[in-house]
Design a protein around this nucleic acid. Structure first.
Lengths: 189, 189
DNA sequence: GACAGTCTTTGCCATTTGGCAAATAACGAA
DNA sequence: TTCGTTATTTGCCAAATGGCAAAGACTGTC
């Protein structure tokens, strides 16, 4: 729970009372490997902060391939923002890649924090914006890189993640086939 | 100017007085083809709404290649959000691909709108979030697509843009070489 | 209309990546 | 340990894309 508070405090100030309120509204949830936190077609009723484990956001493209859009590791929020904010059906899945510990807020709780804590919305805006910028800045250059560069950059950015996830998921994130990724790993050693 | 107001009104309500205020704070600016709206290393002091023409956001990668991150066509905002919001140096260029007409707000004017208009920040939040989501949703699937699919999807999304921009820029956006794109176009006809 | 400059296409060949299937390795349950 | 399951590696060949340079097309100017 402390990791969540520390994370939020990077984006603004909360007094002790407000911190207590945030903690009261939060619930710790365990999610087993391969279980879903949210699913395409359903409305995202919760937002999660990952304290242990790795989530992935994925969808199925028009060829039926399972595409990993991105990974969410420790100390990051996971939510389908469009679905959560507007309470409309989601278009993607959020799945546990490993066993996970999450800190979860329901829609109503989150709304209450927004209504109660002055400056909460602004902090959320900053967190959201930063998350999006990181995402775009990470994905966008990959288009101009070859598979090896993508993999090496992934290792730099997520040094601890690569060993904890199946090769197939990493490959689908990098936009290459599993066998290509396997060959790339061989060549690097 | 009306196009800007109409755009904003999609994301919330403004009364007549507030609309007048927005208009007063805005300045129409012409930008010649290839001129820069903002540059890497400099602080983004303005946010622009494109009413005519096409901008592109680009940067130079570590090999010195000019990479187009994305295009901004009519009825969209252009801004390096991190640089503008926090007034820190930008990391990318925003350049006119064609002659452009922009509606521009300076940092202080924008701040004033934020301080004066109740709900302005929330509208901006919605606009920002939507823009980011569109961006991610457009770029992210490209990683799993081959060059032809990327090009076809671009044509679908920006049917009027493809004819107005040099092939080299489109190729760098799609993450392929100019000659590959040329060949792809030939095969499609 | 001719020229210079720029943009686009094309040819040739090298390199990268994909597709598929089989072999191997790693893992977990009994 | 042993077996069955899943994950990863590898071989073989096809397809896609890149690199480079030359040719061709287009545009605006004088």
């Amino acid at each position: 729970m402390e990791s969540l508070i520390n994370y939020i405090l990077q984006f603004g100030h909360l007094n002790q009372q407000q911190i207590e309120l945030v903690k009261r509204k939060a619930t710790e949830v365990q999610l087993k490997k391969e279980a879903y936190f949210s699913e395409a077609g359903k409305i995202a009723r919760q937002v999660a902060f990952v304290t242990q484990g790795i989530l992935r956001v994925h969808y199925y493209n028009n060829k039926g391939e399972d595409i990993t859009r991105y990974f969410i590791d420790e100390n990051n929020f996971a939510v389908d923002l469009n679905s959560f904010n507007y309470q409309v059906p989601s278009s993607e899945y959020v799945q546990a890649v490993t066993d996970c510990t999450l800190i979860v807020f329901g829609y109503d709780s989150f709304k209450e924090l927004s209504d109660t804590i002055i400056g909460w919305d602004e902090m959320i805006y900053k967190i959201t914006t930063k998350a999006f910028m990181d995402k775009v800045n990470r994905i966008s250059p990959m288009l101009a890189e070859d598979a090896t560069e993508r993999y090496l950059k992934f290792l730099e950015r997520y040094p601890t993640v690569a060993n904890r996830i199946p090769l197939s998921l990493l490959a689908s994130y990098l936009g290459i086939t599993q066998s290509s990724l396997s060959r790339i790993r061989k060549n690097i050693r």
